[in-house]
């Protein structure tokens, strides 16, 4: 598959990212960062949850150790995704290619990549990362510059974009595989338990994702193991 095909497949992700990173740019500037700083954070990190937590730590003058640990915990799920991508990689994924493509493993890019029936090549993955990267960076720039002009209810409404995209990724497989539905339900239930109990003050949202994901996937793998996948 070509770089062009990858870039095309990345367009919906880029558009979704654009609205999400718009909010990030807005928040960063409102918090006291300069426009170029907000854009640089997005260009260097390409991750929503990690950047939001990182921004909070910066603005609160947190320690570098806190910054490192928070990023490690919140983004640890990418390690699991990288392992899965590695399983589907073809021989064009050399070490330099992996050093570049590793930068662009995000929830949505990962979901689209592993949803492909074919093996994953360097060119397709590069394309699949470029368009969302542009969307994410441009969205941050626009949010940082224009955010103060838009009415707040519009900005608030855009906040659902990323989560709606998640629905579009997880719901279609549920129709054909009830086991996937069970795994999603377990994970979502664990996340809700943490959210609606005093655990919320104890476990961070990033760590909740890790615990819930590992627990639900383990149950899935033990109870309904895949014959050949």
């Amino acid at each position: 598959m070509t770089i062009k095909q990858g870039m095309k497949d990345g367009i919906p992700i880029a558009l979704g990212y654009h609205s999400v990173s718009f909010t990030f740019g807005l928040m960063a500037v409102a918090g006291g960062l300069k426009v170029w700083q907000a854009v640089l954070i997005s260009a260097a990190n390409l991750t929503s949850a990690g950047q939001l937590a990182g921004l909070d730590i910066m603005l609160a003058s947190g320690s570098m150790a806190e910054m490192a640990l928070a990023q490690f915990i919140i983004n640890l799920r990418y390690s699991l995704m990288s392992i899965a991508v590695s399983q589907k990689a073809d021989e064009s994924m050399t070490v330099p290619a992996r050093l570049g493509i590793g930068f662009g493993i995000t929830d949505e890019i990962f979901a689209l990549a592993v949803g492909q029936h074919e093996t994953l090549g360097r060119r397709y993955m590069t394309g699949l990362i470029i368009t969302p990267f542009i969307g994410w960076t441009l969205g941050t720039l626009m949010g940082a510059v224009l955010g103060s002009i838009l009415p707040s209810f519009v900005v608030d409404a855009l906040g659902i974009a990323l989560y709606a995209m998640f629905l579009a990724i997880i719901i279609p497989p549920v129709r054909v595989d009830i086991k996937v539905a069970a795994v999603i339900l377990i994970s979502a239930a664990l996340s809700c338990i943490r959210y609606y109990t005093p655990l919320k003050g104890v476990i961070s949202s990033g760590f909740t994702i890790i615990i819930a994901s590992i627990a639900a996937s383990t149950v899935g793998a033990l109870l309904f193991s895949k014959e050949n996948k």
């Binding site: 929830d107 989560y163 996340s191 994702i209 895949k226």
Partner: peptide, 22 residues
């Protein structure tokens, strides 16, 4: 086991990220 785990993992990640935050 690891193959199955990796197959389910992205759905689990997105499930816990989406609910109840959405």
């Amino acid at each position: 086991f690891i193959k199955s785990f990796l197959f389910y993992m992205p759905y689990a990640v997105l499930g816990s990220m989406t609910f109840p935050t959405i």
